[in-house]
Amino acid sequence: MIFLLKNRRMRRVWAALLLLLFCASGWSQGTTFKLAEDPDLPYVIAHCTACHSGSLITQNRMTRDGWLKTIRWMQKEQGLWPLGEHEERVLNYLERHYFPQTSGRRKAIAPHLMPKQNP
């Protein structure tokens, strides 16, 4: 905790998080989209929507691995800070609510019928 607070960005995140934990979770959400209610939502608001619209989350569906890759890309290219111990909670949230959906008119070809040498 003390270590984390040494980092200016992380101090801001912790401040936002503490505020959010005591506020209605919809507090910082827009009206055209709504992030799913969840005990871990404050972590998503603190780390993700601090910089970008929540609609970038709500309109996408990814596997846990896909969300992690996106976080790594944002960290590499977009100046996202390390999520530290919160990464697990953020990924849990994203996987729980924004996992690829099975709806639609046709599913993908089943994995056991896919090429093994898929680069």
Partner: peptide, 29 residues
């Protein structure tokens, strides 16, 4: 910068999130 590069974000979705990975494990009858 992030919003301006949302095209890059889509490209990321298109290239790194390969089609077949969309099939959740529960759908392998």
């Amino acid at each position: 910068r992030f919003l301006l590069q949302s095209g890059a974000f889509s490209a990321l979705l298109g290239t790194e999130i390969v089609f077949h990975k969309y099939l959740p494990p529960g759908l392998l009858p």
